[in-house]
């Protein structure tokens, strides 16, 4: 396989990275809201949050993408397929991230919150100074795994016609008739990206490595 073909894959991986990064970030914002809903005192909000998490974790991302891809035009939103892909990926990862965040907050030991109560912290101060920083630290490994999961899952947006890494490999495999090399090379590019992300996650973890609980 020539360097030229490989370079085309590397260039296509830019879109893979952008789509994933945007979806993971949007998903995180959405996940914070969903997590707040699930942990709130409001029963309706809790039920809605749980339903959201259950649905998007309970169905294949491929089906979600196809559904959104065909649904958006039907409700009058003619958007490029990249946007449909981002919507689908963001919703899906939001459900997973919401569960991860909830797990983080639940794992903050009660005693640490009681200590804050005894020191006179208001609920808002307890959240800002104690619960949030600890929950964030606890969830970094799981959020890193989820980011890697999304990077891999982004290959599915190739079916709705987004020319990202997998789709580029597919197109090149069809035109050059060398699927073995091209898919192996695509896999290699994914692997490199994921190793970098895993390394970033580890670095972040180390930087926040004050106290194991």
């Amino acid at each position: 396989m020539s360097w030229k073909l490989f370079w085309l894959l590397v260039e296509a991986s830019r879109l893979t990275i952008i789509l994933s990064a945007v979806s993971i970030s949007l998903g995180f914002v959405l996940a914070s809201l969903v997590c707040a809903a699930v942990m709130s005192g409001n029963r309706a909000a809790r039920a809605a949050g749980r339903l959201f998490v259950s649905f998007f974790r309970g169905t294949p991302l491929l089906v979600q993408l196809l559904l959104i891809y065909y649904l958006l035009p039907q409700i009058g939103l003619n958007v490029p397929s990249e946007v449909a892909a981002i919507v689908g990926m963001s919703l899906c990862t939001a459900a997973y991230q919401a569960e991860i965040l909830r797990g983080g907050f639940v794992s903050v030991p009660r005693g640490l919150i009681e200590a804050a109560n005894m020191c006179g912290f208001s609920p808002a101060a307890t959240f800002r100074r104690i619960r949030l920083p600890i929950a964030v630290q606890l969830t970094i490994p799981a959020l890193t795994s989820e980011a890697i999961m999304m990077l891999k899952s982004s290959s599915l947006v190739s079916v709705v016609g987004v020319i990202e890494l997998t789709r580029m490999a597919q197109d090149l495999a069809a035109s050059t008739y060398r699927p073995l090399e091209l898919y192996a090379a695509a896999g290699f590019v994914y692997l490199v990206i994921n190793i970098v992300v895993a390394g970033l996650g580890l670095g972040l973890e180390k930087r926040m490595s004050w106290g194991r609980l």
Partner: peptide, 10 residues
């Protein structure tokens, strides 16, 4: 407290 409950990030 029995478990000290020091905040681990400080």
């Amino acid at each position: 407290f029995q478990q000290f409950n020091l905040w681990p990030h400080m």
